[in-house]
Design a protein around this nucleic acid. Structure first.
Lengths: 218, 218
DNA sequence: CCAAAAGTGTTAGGAGTACACCCATGG
DNA sequence: CCATGGGTGTACTCCTAACACTTTTGG
C-alpha cells in the first residue's frame, strides 16, 4: 500500500510526590498545532520498533535502561488527518530520580502533567493514554513493575505511595506490607531514611528471576 | 520511510475432540515456499487493522462474528527476507460447529493442525503462535472467552474439555462446575444430550454484560 | 451386566480485607 | 510536647484444591 506510515508513540509515566505523571509535548506544527501529544516518531529503516521507542525515550528524557513494554497498535484509517498513519504504542516507567528532561529535543518542549488532570490531547492520544494507564494498573497487581518507578533504595512508605498513586485509591498499610513480606522480593538494608519523623528503613528490590524488565520480546 | 509494508496475521484457534487446533496455510511462493504459515494479508488503504483480520478470517473459514483480539505487533527488521514488513498479529476463536474451510481461497490450502504438534513455521510465525497460545491461556482464566469455542448449546463435559485442551492439563470436575455455578453465566436448558452414556444436560452461555466479544477496541 | 461419562459435598489451607495502637524523630 | 509517618497482629471471609461414590444410559 502507498502512503502508509508507521510511528511509535510512547506513554511515559513517572510518579512524583504521590502523583502519577505523564510526559507530553506541545505540538509546533499542524495538525493539532499548539495541542499536547504523547511523544513519538517515525520508524527508520532497519530499526526495531522497540528501538524507536528507546530512542524517543532517550531523546526526551535522557534515560536508558527503563521498563518498556509494547501496548497496542492503533490503526484506524482516520486517526491522522494527514493520511494513513499506524502507530505502535508503547509505555515506559521511569524512576523519579532518573530523568532529566531534555530541552528543545524535538523543537518541542516536554513537560510532566498529572495523569488525572491532562489537557486535551491530539489525535487519538487520549485513547492511547487511557489504555496505557489501564494496563499499568493491571500489571501492578500481578507483576513487580511498580519498582521501576522508585529509586534503588526506598522506604515502604514510598513504595506504597507509588501503588496508591497509580491505582487511585488508598491501601491498607499492614496488608500491603504483609503481602510484600510474603513475596520475598525486598532486601532490607541497614540504612534508615531521616525525614523529620520516625526514620524509615530502606529496602532494595531483589527479584528472584529477572522478570521485572521487558515483559515480552520475541 | 520507504519500502515499508504492514501485514495483519491471524492465529485462528478451534477445539475439536478435546484437541486445540490452529489454522495454517501452505506457502506457494518464496520465501519459505512449501512451508506452513499463519494466514495473513497486506492492509488496504482505508481499511482498519481489525477489518483486515476479519476479512482474512472470512476468506479462509467463511466465518463472521467471532471473537477477535489484537495480540502484538512484530516488527523485527529481519523478520521477512523480502524487506521491512511489520505485522500486526491477531488471534481469533471459532466454534467447532461454525467453520467450513474455504478451498483455494488464497491459492493456498488451509488446514487445521494440532497446536501441540505443529510443523515448522515460516518467518517468525512460531513466536506469534506461542504468544497467542499464552495469551489465550491467560484470558481463559479471567474472562469467558472459552465459550467462543463452543456451539450455542453444550454440555458441561464439553466445556471442561475445551478448558483442558487449551490449558493442557486436567481439571477437577466438581471444582470446575462449582466455579461456573458461582459465576452464574450458564443458562440450563430443558434439553439433554444423548451420547451412549448417561445423558448430559445442555446449557447456553448467558453473559451479564456483553464483554465476551472484542475485548478492547478504541 | 458392563463400560463410560454425568452428577454431586465436604474439608483444609491460603489469600484478601478490615481494623487500632504504640514508637521514634525533628521541630 | 506534639505532629507526623513508621511499624506491628488478629479475626473473618472467600476462593482454591483435594478427594470418591452413585446414577443413567447404550451396547
Amino acid at each position: 500500500m502507498e502512503n502508509l506510515r508507521v510511528t511509535v508513540d510512547i506513554v511515559i509515566f513517572t510518579v512524583t510526590n504521590g502523583s502519577i505523571q505523564v510526559l507530553l509535548v506541545k505540538r509546533g506544527v499542524p495538525p493539532f498545532e499548539g495541542q499536547y501529544a504523547i511523544p513519538g516518531g517515525f520508524i527508520r529503516e532497519d530499526e526495531s520498533l522497540e528501538n524507536v521507542a528507546l530512542r524517543e525515550l532517550y531523546e526526551e528524557t535522557g534515560v536508558r535502561n527503563v521498563f518498556l513494554e509494547q501496548l497496542y497498535t492503533f490503526g484506524d484509517p482516520k486517526r491522522d488527518p494527514r493520511g494513513r498513519v499506524i502507530t505502535v504504542a508503547y509505555y515506559a516507567l521511569i524512576a523519579s530520580d532518573k530523568y532529566s528532561l531534555v530541552a528543545g529535543a524535538d523543537a518541542a518542549e516536554a513537560h510532566w502533567y498529572a495523569a488525572n488532570d491532562l489537557p486535551p490531547l491530539a489525535f487519538d492520544h487520549r485513547s492511547i493514554f487511557d489504555y496505557a494507564l489501564e494496563r499499568l494498573r493491571n500489571k501492578l497487581e500481578y507483576t513487580t513493575v511498580g519498582f521501576q518507578l522508585l529509586p534503588e533504595k526506598f522506604s515502604l512508605g514510598e513504595l506504597q505511595a507509588v501503588y496508591e498513586a497509580i491505582l487511585g485509591r488508598r491501601l491498607d498499610k499492614r496488608n500491603f506490607r504483609r503481602k510484600l513480606a510474603l513475596l520475598g522480593i525486598l532486601k532490607p538494608l541497614r540504612e534508615w531514611q531521616r525525614t523529620g519523623h520516625k526514620p524509615a528503613q530502606l529496602f532494595r528490590f531483589a527479584a528472584r528471576h529477572g522478570n521485572q524488565e521487558v515483559d515480552f520480546d520475541p
